[in-house]
Structure formats: C-alpha cells, structure tokens
Amino acid sequence: MGAWYFVFLAYGIVWSAILIYWLTLKRRLARAETELAELCASSEPQANAKT
C-alpha cells in the first residue's frame, strides 16, 4: 500500500493542478471575451454616429 500512496499523491497533484489551470484559463478567457463584446457593442453606435 505504501507504493500506491506515492502513485496517488503524484497523480492527484498533477491532475488537480492541470484542472485548476484549465478552469482559471477558461475564466480569464470568458472575462476577456465579455469585455471584448462590450467594447464592440459600445463602439458601434459611435461609428454610426460619426458616419
């Protein structure tokens, strides 16, 4: 059982870290895309107003 402890420790740390990174990445991306959408939406009436 001692050996399996190390195996699970390694696998646990690695896959948790990858999961956390993936989730933070998705969150950053979602935040950036909403900001982009807001910018696009607010700049369109401006562009229309200029023309």
Binding site: Y21, W22, L25, K26, R28, L29, A32, E33, E35, L36, L39, C40, S43, Q46
Partner: peptide
C-alpha cells in the same frame, strides 16, 4: 488544447487593446 485556449486569450486581449486605442 490548453495552448489553443491560452492563444485565444492572447488574441482577444490584443483585440481589446487595439479597440481601446482606436477609441
């Protein structure tokens, strides 16, 4: 997969910056 996500984040950030500059 992770690289493409991160790459897209970089691209979106660039677009945001460009839009803000032009505004």
């Amino acid at each position: 997969y992770l690289l493409s996500l991160r790459f897209r984040l970089g691209e979106v950030n660039e677009e945001i910056k460009a839009l803000k500059l032009s505004r």
